[in-house]
Write a protein that binds this DNA or RNA. Sequence first.
DNA 1: TAATAACGAATAATAGTTATCTATTTATAT
DNA 2: ATATAAATAGATAACTATTATTCGTTATTA
Lengths: 141, 141
Amino acid sequence: MENRVTALLREKGFKVTPQRLAIYKVLANSKAHPSAENIFQQLQPYYPTMSLATVYKTVEILKEIGLIQVLNAGEDSFRYDADTSMHPHIRCLQCGRVDDLHDIDINTFIGQVAEKTPYRLTGQQFYFYGCCPVCQGKPAN
Amino acid sequence: MENRVTALLREKGFKVTPQRLAIYKVLANSKAHPSAENIFQQLQPYYPTMSLATVYKTVEILKEIGLIQVLNAGEDSFRYDADTSMHPHIRCLQCGRVDDLHDIDINTFIGQVAEKTPYRLTGQQFYFYGCCPVCQGKPAN
DNA sequence: TAATAACGAATAATAGTTATCTATTTATAT
DNA sequence: ATATAAATAGATAACTATTATTCGTTATTA
């Protein structure tokens, strides 16, 4: 799996560095859709000299070569997801966690839009909002 | 229509000011989903002393009392929409315009998600991306 | 019309992100 | 392995959207 990243970076003319592999690995091993700040903090113990700018530059590259997707779930910062398959996301308005929604048929929905809009479609993002199971047990803030 | 806004502001304990009515009117008369900066510029000729902070505070209030909805179509700024009905949006990746998508059945899609997720759903936003009819005629940038 | 609570404008502050600069590191060909 | 050229990482400054603060002004209510 690390080879695939290495190969793709080289193929697209980017150099392979430990930082880039580490940042991708954080995303590949997480289902929490971390933000740049988040990735930075997770790597801090292992790469104490790495700067936040490096994280931003790297996720930009990873997005460009199609290894990750960028999420904008109405927060003040972006999140990143190594699962590039097309799937909706859901955010808990109480605790802020963002989860994947899998096994949902999105194709009929997309097909419907494709039929009706004069746009040529190239992509889409679906965001749901609500209260996660954990927070349903807590008193509403 | 202006009476509805006036009444709702008062009812919720907010004062009715010319600036607030003007900002709402800009949104109500537009299908372009303007940003705060945009609203500010449109009102500049008529309210030359109005500050951008006033626009931000006002859209926050308008959102709170349910007169508008806030869009986050993956740009660096938010957009505002006086059409609070639940409808998907589509953004042209070339020129940046954002259009409404109407007459789309979103309920089966939402129903499907409601069934599968353990979250309690409270809302959703659907964003499509592509190339608008105008830009399809232009050379790709 | 007076009292009071909220507001608008100006400004400063904040936060996320991007640009710049230079020493260092990677890739490639010897 | 090593030298070389190109790209990168880190530090820092800059930038932009948004939010907070302050104070004179205005809308509401009686």
